[in-house]
């Protein structure tokens, strides 16, 4: 060829082998006469190969459970809506009913027996699971204070809860502290610490000082939708550890948390 000028678009398409064979050949001929274009297109080809090589390993990584699970259509809530929405609605509806009950009991204070009001409070495991479902998927703001300011976090939460609280160290089990936040509980503030493992799997530890039973309990287990929860009462604290992971693995972490907090 050719008196026709070669366009930038053609050079790009040449790099991607998107032209007809004749056209590709014509471009090659052009490049022999235009070293600057030749250098540039060669660089683009190398770039393309390098990008492929850089991200190729992701294709061979094992899929995280949370993604694998979603390859199957999630069960919907009876009210319809997507999986997240449905779960959310169910949990939140339960919480709302319980909270209204609690508020009603609270407002009607004098008319109810103490035990009756207590019975209306939201169970620890459920509160913790709702808090987990609400905050752990949050990409941008999962916590109010991040782990790089752990000292400030501890100071603040201890002050608000009116008693020293401190996040256990779970690095040995592969979970690093992300940070924490303050949440409203049944009658006052509670704390939530968030952790994640190398795969990004998040776990939350919910700490309350308003435990219903004023006596220590052993581990209890609850399943709230896709969230597994271990919870227990130790002294004046109620703890609940929530994550979307296998019960056995969660039990291991719960044991470690218990051991650490018990040593104080």
């Amino acid at each position: 060829m050719t008196s026709q000028p070669i366009t930038e678009d053609e050079l790009q398409a040449y790099v991607d082998d998107a032209l007809t064979p004749e056209w590709q050949a014509a471009l090659e001929e052009h490049l022999t006469r235009h070293p600057a274009d030749a250098e540039r297109t060669a660089a683009y080809r190398a770039q393309k190969q390098a990008l492929k090589a850089l991200f190729q390993p992701v294709l061979d990584e094992p899929l995280p459970d949370r993604l694998q699970t979603l390859s199957v259509q999630p069960l919907r809530a009876p009210t319809g809506g997507g999986w997240t929405g449905g779960l959310w609605q169910r949990l939140a509806a339960g919480l709302l009913v319980a909270a209204l009950g609690g508020a009603g009991g609270w407002l009607a204070h004098g008319q109810y027996l103490q035990g009756d009001r207590m019975a209306r409070m939201v169970p620890l495991s459920h509160q913790a699971a709702v808090a987990h479902v609400v905050y752990s998927p949050d990409v941008r703001r999962p916590v109010e204070i991040a782990a790089d300011q752990e000292e400030a976090l501890v100071k603040w939460l201890s002050k608000r809860l009116g008693t020293p609280v401190r996040p256990p160290k779970l690095g040995a089990l592969g979970y690093e502290l992300v940070g924490g936040r303050l949440l409203p509980g049944n009658s006052g503030p509670v704390a939530q610490f968030m952790y994640h493992d190398a795969s990004g799997q998040r776990m939350t530890l919910y700490v309350t000082t308003e435990s219903i039973e004023k006596r220590d309990t052993g581990f209890r287990f609850a399943r709230e939708g896709p969230v597994n929860v271990f919870y227990w009462v130790d002294g004046k604290f109620g703890y609940a550890l929530s994550a979307g992971i296998d019960k056995g693995e969660l039990a291991k972490v719960a044991t470690a948390v218990y051991d650490q907090l018990d040593q104080k």
Binding site: V58, R66, L67, G81, G82, P137
Partner: peptide, 22 residues
Amino acid sequence: AMLGDRAAADDLVQDTLERAWS
């Protein structure tokens, strides 16, 4: 490749699947 961060990327994929199913 778009986001750089592994956890953020998987969050985006998860959101994508949830929206796809809905």
